[in-house]
Simulated assay, not measured.
Amino acid sequence: MSSIPHAELEAFRTEFPILQTRTYLNSCSLGALSRRSMGYLGEYQALWNTMGASAWYELWMGRIGQLKQTVATMWNADEKEIALSPSVSGALSSIASAIDYTKRNKIVVAELDFPTLVYQWLARNDVEVVRVPSDDGIGVPPERWAEYVDERTALVATSHVFYGTGYVQDLAPIAKAARDAGALFLVDGYQSAGQIRVDPRAVDADIYVAGPLKWLCGGPGIAFLWVRQERIAELRPTIASWFGARDQFQFRNDELEFRDDAGRFSMGTPAVPTVYTALGGLEIFAEAGQDRIYERIAALTEDVVTLAQEAGFELKIAEDPARRSGIVLIRNDDAPAAVRRLADKNIIVDHRAGYVRVSPHFYNTPEENRKFIAALRG
């Protein structure tokens, strides 16, 4: 009998066409596309073909609002704290432009963070970027952050889950280090939203960014930005879009008044097709149940870890299972070639820096884990 919980969630496999022809274990790169999302995308196309621009005012703006409310509910937040952006880069650019660096010009990040998170500040010549080192290349001891954060620190920015190791950070000590120094705390949740619980206020973040591309199965073109209500008024961007303006449909071009809510950080017209596909993914996510999804991903992850270790593979993962997420790195001398060979067998995974990267989602099965490990051994 399988020890993987919530076998009832396998009923959702029929929602994802790729699972009918492939063993898809690469959700940390791109979540599978659902029939629900494809149907909603067809609805969007039909509205464009029948209503034209009037669809904007009568329906599409409502769908944008629905997406923001859905994200707010999922994150235990207020809709006024949620903004949409074309990408995490766009969201971070807006936030970066709103910070005063004249008295505090130090940004603290982790050396294991995804480049996008760091590039926003490396591109500036008025800040110093300090990277907190890792001893093992897997995680960063949470107590270490306090050593690098001081009265010059404007922002502490780091990942909830490290993309290259799947390591889940303990955010509370990092938040405390930022708070004690009077710095803002920003969390990149692009690899966490959809596979572990996200509650930005509970982890004492000021800013949290994520998107539907990966574990939320909504596709590219939109990012979700949460800004703590108490911080919004003090953060005034110096880059702007008409979606960030108060009373945007007054079309004033002689003055700019920002919205009072997190919408002030919106970067341009949202990608309406992705609004629709994201709603499809989030709808399935809600129906499947967050807690059930998280429990199943954790069990499938431990299953693939056990199978890989029994097969003699070297893994790059956290020693403590509590710090693991649904991303497993398996050492391979020629990881790109291994990924290509697996693809020839209709097994889809990815690779990073000498490792094959596998990421089981709630719609995967223990049988697929075994099939993957057997093929990788072969």
Rank of each mutant, 00 (worst) to 15 (best):
A308C: 12
F313D: 05
Y276K: 00
T365P: 08
D344I: 01
D303Q: 10
I330Q: 09
L376M: 10
A318D: 06
L307V: 04
A343V: 02
H361K: 08
Y355F: 15
H351W: 14
A318N: 05
A311H: 05
L279V: 00
G326S: 14
T306S: 15
V358E: 11
V328F: 09
R370G: 15
E287R: 08
R340T: 11
R292D: 11
K371F: 05
F285S: 00
L376S: 06
E283W: 04
R340L: 14
E310P: 02
A286G: 01
F285D: 00
E302Q: 13
I348T: 08
N332I: 04
E302K: 01
N346Y: 10
I284D: 00
N332V: 05
A288G: 02
I330C: 10
I347T: 04
A338V: 07
V339C: 15
A353P: 00
S359C: 10
D344A: 12
L342F: 08
L307I: 04
A286L: 05
P336M: 09
R331M: 08
I347F: 11
G312T: 07
V328A: 07
Y276I: 00
I373L: 13
F372K: 06
N346Q: 13
F362V: 14
E368F: 09
Q290H: 06
E368A: 13
P360F: 06
A353I: 11
R341L: 12
V358N: 06
K345N: 11
